[in-house]
């Protein structure tokens, strides 16, 4: 009895701690985004804006009016979406083969994905920079999309293989018995069944692409292709000597909104996708 109560209290305390852990820094960056730039320049310690040191929505107005920042959002969305779609499309084919078909080299495919997922991206930056300037795709969308595939593709293959193992393949066999070829069975029966998994893989892949920083700062130099994380790190305010902390915070919040929306809508699926690798259904 007593022990049970203790466990319940412990769980409750843990529950509160988890929420604090996850949300406090987010609340902080939101709070910071409402401090006025003057207050920040002169020093305004504390979690909340001091009286008279609040900026209202001004920082958000400034950030959203900033052409460089808007371009960065556009770049990030465009580049991340393209990389996601390409990776997921190719990974779907691969994962189908891995989960469904018996073939030589299956281990090789999975090991390759595993090794490449662990690849130190910084190692690629130097040679890519040198190659891209020769090919003339330095500071372009395509110049980022290609290297993004180095980490989005393994991730997508990874997640999708796990999902595809759960699919009731008997239905495909049923279709084949009805006279459909392997390819037709794949397209007509399996694709609709696999769609939720594909979608989840796409969200996770998008997160990774959205998060990239190393390629973003190394392979761009203007707003032509610079994605959000890089743009944030170079953020320049009216005062060249102080990092415009509150303006940056507003930018950070804006950059985080898409992530939070995705999390809110697809929480269940994302958790399933993330843990797919560790649990064998």
């Amino acid at each position: 009895m007593n022990k049970n109560a203790l466990t319940r209290v412990g769980t409750l305390v843990g529950f509160v701690l988890i929420l604090l852990w996850c949300l406090l820094p987010v609340a902080w960056i939101i709070s910071l985004s409402f401090k006025s730039q003057e207050a920040v320049t002169n020093g305004s310690p504390g979690f909340f804006p001091q009286s008279g040191g609040g900026a209202g929505w001004q920082n958000y107005v400034d950030v959203l009016q900033d052409e460089q920042f808007r371009r960065a959002i556009l770049n990030s969305i465009g580049i991340s979406l393209t990389a996601t779609i390409l990776s997921v499309a190719l990974a779907t084919l691969t994962a189908y083969a891995v989960a469904r078909l018996e073939f030589q080299g299956k281990k090789f495919v999975l090991t390759t994905a595993l090794v490449i997922a662990m690849f130190p991206v910084v190692s690629l930056v130097g040679p890519l920079f040198d190659m891209w300037r020769t090919f003339g795709i330095y500071d372009t969308w395509i110049g980022l999309i290609i290297p993004y595939m180095s980490f989005t593709l393994p991730l997508a293959i990874w997640t999708l293989s796990a999902f595809f193992r759960e699919i009731p393949w008997e239905m495909e066999q049923a279709a084949q018995v009805d006279g459909a070829t392997s390819w037709q069975a794949f397209r007509k029966v399996i694709v609709p069944l696999a769609a939720p998994g594909v979608f989840t893989a796409a969200i996770l892949t998008f997160f990774f692409a959205w998060n990239d920083f190393v390629f973003g700062i190394s392979l761009t130099s203007t707003e032509r292709a610079r994605p959000i994380p890089a743009a944030l790190s170079f953020f320049v305010g009216a005062d060249p000597f102080n990092r415009p902390a509150s303006l940056l915070a507003a930018g950070a919040v804006v950059a985080t909104v898409p992530v939070i929306l995705l999390v809110l809508f697809f929480q269940r699926k994302i958790v399933a996708g993330l843990t797919a690798g560790a649990v064998k259904g």
């Binding site: 730039q37 003057e38 001004q58 400034d62 009016q65 900033d66 052409e67 460089q68 371009r71 707003e223 305010g237 009216a238 005062d239």
Partner: peptide, 17 residues
Amino acid sequence: RRRRTAAVIASVALGSS
């Protein structure tokens, strides 16, 4: 300063377009 920021942003925007 605020005005300055706005002016800068506006002209940068103009420049980019």
